[in-house]
Amino acid sequence: MHIFKVEGMHCEMCVKRIEAAFEAEKMHAFINLKEKTVAVESETDAPTVMELLEDLGFEPTMIQ
């Protein structure tokens, strides 16, 4: 399980954007707006997820 802290997540709209982007890449993510975290399965390529979140305009840092 990889968990990323995502700065810049603000509202439900941001969550929807992340969901849409992940779905397009056929990846599944658990998004927590209150904690501002995004968690993915361990099999998922961490750098790819970072790239995706950066493309979305957020500032992700890997916590785990």
Binding site: G8, M13, C14, D55, L56, G57, F58
Partner: peptide, 9 residues
């Protein structure tokens, strides 16, 4: 947040 995201992207 959305406008900031666009700028950053």
């Amino acid at each position: 947040a959305c406008s900031a995201a666009v700028e950053k992207a």
